[in-house]
Computed example of a mutant assay.
Amino acid sequence: MPRITVVTDSTASLPADVASARGIRVVPLQVVIGAASYDEGSAEATPAKVAEALRTWTPVSTSRPTPAAVLEAYQAAADAGADSIVSVHLSGEMSGTFESAQLAARDSPVPVLVVDSRQVGFATGVAALEAADVIDAGGTAQEAADAARRRATGATSLFYVDTLEYLRRGGRIGAAAAILGSALSVKPLLRIKDGRIESLEKVRTTSKALARLVDLAVEAAGDRRVSLGVAHLANPDRADALVAAVGQRLADNLEGRPVECAELGAVLGAHVGPGMVAVCVAPLL
């Protein structure tokens, strides 16, 4: 029976115990705070430290893992008995991580299928878990990779930010859009579309923005069975309110599954800034 291992990156935001239990290997991206570089998930690069650095205008940037770092994960999987790998990563439109995985796959001791989720955060995580589910059910590496792509493609990732400034600093939106948003004092709602961040709507108050996020999540779910994830950066109260609201509105779709809620990882947090809240609707296959 072939042994297939799933590899993903730290932006998938899989809890360490979940990744370990499912046999998923996680490659960290790097967070640069001031002049020091740290692995995402380390004690030096927590979401709280990133949020504080952003508030105090300490330079914060991020970088992809090198192909060599990804190759180390592939080698470790092979050494542990894997004879093939499914490698699921955040959108190649927003990070070079997918490219690093492709380059590493060329030198891997076992075959690797690299999947561009064209998503971030929770949606990438559920895609990696979907691949693991297929493998656990006896599926092939190709079937697992295909399922990961379908799960990610079907997901809707929506988020609210207090300001577009952090996205501008990281080059994820244009300076003109950020300046215009600040000048009009609008509260932007954004989404991931075709692997990129796209402006969705603009509202005037935070309360309206959060209410609209809930409405959009309900629209995205329709009558389908879904998993739901809520994320935030330094904003637990808003996140708790969002969990309660979407959980109530989509109780039938969830069929008893909890709304997952966690603080956003340091890498994604560096680009959206404190105050961000997000909801991801991921229909089950």
Rank of each mutant, 00 (worst) to 15 (best):
Y166F: 14
L184Y: 07
A144H: 02
G181P: 02
V161P: 00
A152F: 05
R149S: 14
T206E: 12
I197N: 00
L167R: 02
F159H: 07
D194G: 13
G174E: 06
A128Y: 06
G170R: 07
D136S: 15
A176N: 13
E198Y: 03
D133W: 06
S207A: 15
F159C: 06
I197K: 00
R196K: 15
E143H: 08
A141W: 01
A183E: 10
K208L: 11
E198W: 06
S157C: 15
E143Y: 06
R150E: 11
G171A: 11
T163P: 07
A177G: 06
T153L: 12
G154D: 07
R169K: 15
L184M: 15
I135W: 02
A155L: 05
A137S: 14
A176I: 13
E201I: 04
T205I: 09
D194I: 08
L158I: 10
E165V: 14
L180M: 10
G139R: 04
G181K: 01
K187A: 05
R204A: 12
L180P: 01
T156W: 02
G171E: 09
I179P: 01
E130R: 15
R196P: 09
T205C: 09
I173G: 01
L164N: 05
I135T: 04
A131K: 03
A128K: 05
G139W: 02
T153C: 05
T156I: 05
S157R: 08
E165W: 12
A175I: 11
K208I: 01
R191Y: 08
G171Q: 13
A155F: 05
G139H: 04
A132G: 08
S157E: 13
E143L: 08
E165I: 11
T205Q: 07
G138N: 11
R149Q: 15
G181Y: 00
A137G: 13
G195H: 11
E201L: 07
V186N: 03
G195K: 09
L180I: 07
R168V: 05
L167M: 13
T140S: 15
E201A: 07
G170N: 12
S199D: 02
A176F: 12
A128T: 09
E130F: 06
A127E: 03
I135V: 14
V203T: 08
I197S: 00
D136V: 14
R172H: 09
T163L: 11
E201C: 03
G138V: 11
Y166E: 07
K202N: 09
D146R: 11
L129G: 00
S199P: 12
E201T: 04
A152Y: 01
D146W: 08
S185Q: 15
I135M: 03
K208M: 07
R196I: 10
S182M: 10
A127K: 01
V161K: 00
V161A: 06
A152W: 00
G195T: 09
L189E: 00
G154K: 02
A178W: 04
L190I: 14
K187W: 04
I173R: 00
G138Q: 10
K202T: 05
E130C: 12
A131D: 03
K193Q: 14
D133E: 15
S199R: 05
E198Q: 13
I173W: 00
R172S: 06
L167P: 00
Q142W: 07
G171I: 10
V203I: 07
T153S: 14
D194A: 14
A176V: 15
Y166V: 06
E130Q: 15
T156F: 02
G139S: 07
I192E: 04
G170V: 10
A144V: 05
